[in-house]
Computed example of a mutant assay.
Amino acid sequence: MKKIIIIAVFLIGVASVAQNKNAKASIHVDGVCEMCEKRIETACIKTKGVKLADWNVATHELKLIYNENKTNLYAIKKSIVAVGHDTEGMKASDEAYNNLHECCKYRDEEVKAAH
């Protein structure tokens, strides 16, 4: 029994240390323009542990490289919705969305059509 406990503790320790310092992820983030791109990427980079954030205006795909020892996708998405942009599984508050510039109102069909 003692050996099983020691092995379990060892495996848990190894698993926690073995987190990826250059984890890659790709998520969908709503936006419509280059101002949105700058806002989204800046929000990500300001999140401790994010090394690279590249949002594509045409596809709405955000590519990330981040350190799993310092952050996770939930924290990154939280930073993005805080500046007014919806992500996979998280929606920006109405207050954050309403603070966006008029040309960045991606929920408005007329604005989307204009881009």
Rank of each mutant, 00 (worst) to 15 (best):
L52I: 00
E37V: 08
I5R: 11
A113T: 13
H60L: 03
T42C: 03
N69E: 13
L52H: 01
C103D: 13
A53D: 04
T87E: 08
G13Y: 02
A113K: 15
S26M: 11
I5N: 13
K51H: 04
N22P: 03
N22R: 08
G89Q: 01
K24L: 07
N67H: 00
V14S: 15
K112I: 13
K21S: 14
I6V: 14
S16G: 05
K46Y: 05
E68F: 00
A92P: 04
I40K: 02
C36G: 12
Y97C: 12
R107L: 09
C104H: 01
C44M: 07
H101S: 13
E34S: 14
K51P: 06
N20S: 15
K51L: 07
V14C: 13
E95Y: 05
Y97H: 11
N56L: 02
S26K: 15
E88N: 13
T71E: 05
A8Y: 06
K3A: 12
N67V: 03
E34K: 10
D54H: 08
G13K: 03
K48D: 15
C33I: 07
Y97P: 10
M1V: 11
R107V: 02
Y74I: 05
E88D: 15
A82S: 13
G13Q: 07
E110N: 15
C104P: 06
N20W: 00
A43G: 04
C36M: 11
K70R: 03
A82G: 05
I4Q: 14
L100M: 03
K63C: 00
I40Q: 12
I80L: 05
E61S: 15
V111E: 10
N72Q: 11
D94S: 06
L73G: 05
